[in-house]
Design a protein around this nucleic acid. Structure first.
Length: 483
RNA sequence: GGCGACGUAGCCAAGUGGUAAGGCACGGGUCUGCAAAACCCUUAUCCGUCGGUUCAAUUCCGACCGUCGCCUCCA
């Protein structure tokens, strides 16, 4: 089966056919940078990262755009997120933006999330945004009142098609007070008038102001990807109103579809409740990384399907950590065998024939709307098979070992990102350290030979306190520093 | 109120109209002086409840119970 994706626009599984054969254009809604990112962000971006990685694995030439929102959004209190941060710390808004944007990039890199090709920011696209808003006014789809410009939802009958909402039904809910100047309660802002205390402001035909909440994604995705582009990704919670408004702003002006496929990721929950800033039930990515390996966090995220939620708990992360250690240990074993294998050994068919089946099964899982839990099951079947061979066959050939290694690198490494580029192949070396350790190991070996177990164990225990782990294997004693 | 998602072993989590992947934990075993690590094996007569369709349902339909998301801040 070729790649199929679940498209929220049609609510069905569709065969994936990019607009331009061989190329994929993809836009993902990025974060507003006003604080450190938490695990909820990690879930969305790790999920989207695997989508991108798998498209690349399929040899598509991918252009990946993910915005950084740097003009602030309104809080419940009516305050601007970025401005609030700036006031609190007596800083320029752009200093806040710079700090947390870099923090976000650091977090993404630590998690192995590949950098997008373009990370556009609305503050750098004000002219394009103004131009777009003007075009909307000229077309009759937008109107200006007191320096504010609103999109008229009545000008776009398809409004609500993504989230399956009808404008009339929206009014039934308990809603916040409607600004009287809007023609229709559901109309949304394209351009906001800047009040005197508002620090972020730009000149516009409608006076000093700043962009509305949704226009940046329409403008910047179109600028870099054209219309229609292939995939629009992001978090499910942004489907309405944000994604809906993106579509309206674009499609009311153009006859083409804005984005062909909508891939939206489910939220991260804690005890069943969404992890979010406002609820305070969050763990920052930086905090999480002090507790768990980045690959464990990725494995945890990928262990449930991207469209569904995944519930955070210490137990779940701990389980992921253990699982990842088993996987990495197997690959490490393969590497160790390769160090002692004869370089000229070619692959033995009987040893590697199953690799093709595993790769097929992996691709089949991923082709089915990026079913990472199923793909992970294939990876662990491979782990079991590799271990069996490592146990049963003392002299696996270099070719066989290399083929196994490549398979793990390709699937678990390149696509899922749960194998680090560098595994700790051996203990850290250094003449002094090696020499000291050799003295201690020799000493302990003498105790063992003399059956002085308490002395031997004392040495082992005291080294363990320093984080140095001693292991007695059939082939001899090894040591490594605890990771 | 509207739109939508989910409920599978101790925990996490796939999946299928023909009788349940994978991970963690538990238990058993190999190895070890003992450990640790590693590896192997085992673990759901059953898929929220009650009905219906069917030769056959966990999988389709309906009702109900429970949990959650969105309804103009949110990845």
């Amino acid at each position: 089966m070729a790649l199929h994706v679940y498209n929220y626009l049609s609510r069905t599984l569709e065969s994936f056919e990019p607009v331009k054969p061989g190329r994929v254009s993809l836009y993902v809604c990025g974060p507003t940078v006003y604080d450190h990112s938490h695990l909820g962000h990690a879930k969305t971006y790790v999920a989207m990262d695997v989508v991108v990685r798998y498209l690349k694995y399929l040899d598509y030439q991918v252009r990946h755009v993910r915005n950084i929102t740097d003009v602030g959004h309104l809080l419940d209190s009516g305050e601007d997120r970025v401005l609030k941060g700036a006031r609190r710390h007596n800083l320029e808004p752009m200093e806040i933006v710079e700090t947390y944007m870099m923090s976000f990039f650091d977090d993404m890199q630590a998690l192995g999330v590949q950098r997008p090709d373009i990370s556009p920011r609305p503050s750098g696209h004000i002219p394009e945004i103004i131009q777009w808003v003007q075009a909307l006014i000229e077309s009759g789809a937008a109107y200006e009142v007191n320096g504010n410009v609103y999109f008229s939802v009545e000008a776009f009958p398809a409004y609500g098609k993504l989230s399956n909402r009808k404008v009339d039904e929206l009014e039934a809910g308990a809603r916040v007070e409607v600004r009287a100047e809007k023609r229709h309660p559901a109309d949304f802002a394209l351009w906001k008038r800047a009040e005197p205390e508002h620090l972020m402001r730009w000149h516009s035909p409608w006076g000093e102001g700043y962009p509305g909440w949704h226009i940046e994604c329409t403008v910047m995705s179109t600028k870099y990807l054209g219309q229609p582009f292939d995939i629009h990704g992001g978090g499910l919670e942004n489907m309405f109103p944000h994604n809906e408004c993106e579509i309206a702003q674009a499609e009311v002006l153009h006859d083409t579809t804005f984005a062909k496929y909508w891939l939206l990721a489910g939220s991260l929950t804690v005890n069943g409740v969404k992890m979010s800033k406002s609820l305070g039930n969050f763990l920052t990515i930086k905090e999480a990384l002090t507790l768990y390996k980045p690959e464990a966090i990725r494995y945890f995220v990928l262990s449930s399907h991207y469209r569904g939620p995944v519930d955070f708990s210490r137990d779940a992360l701990q389980a992921a950590q253990r699982g990842i250690e088993r996987l990495q240990n197997t690959v490490l074993q393969i590497h160790r065998r390769m160090q002692s294998a004869l370089p000229a050994g070619t692959a033995v068919l009987a040893d590697v024939s199953s690799l093709v089946d595993y790769r097929d099964a992996f691709e089949e899982a991923m082709n089915d709307d990026f079913n990472t839990p199923k793909a992970l099951a294939v990876i662990f079947d491979m782990v079991k098979e590799a271990n069996r061979q490592l146990d049963e066959k003392i002299n696996l050939s270099m070719g066989s070992l290399a083929a196994m290694d490549k398979q793990f690198r390709d699937l678990a490494g390149d696509v899922l990102g749960i194998l680090p580029a560098e595994l700790p192949e051996s203990a850290p070396s250094g003449e002094l350290l090696d020499g000291l350790m050799q003295i201690l190991l020799d000493l302990r070996q003498e105790y063992r030979a003399a059956r002085d177990w308490s002395a031997a164990d004392m040495l082992r225990n005291r080294l363990a306190l320093l984080g140095i782990i001693i292991q007695d294997n059939p082939t001899g004693t090894t040591w490594h520093i605890e990771s």
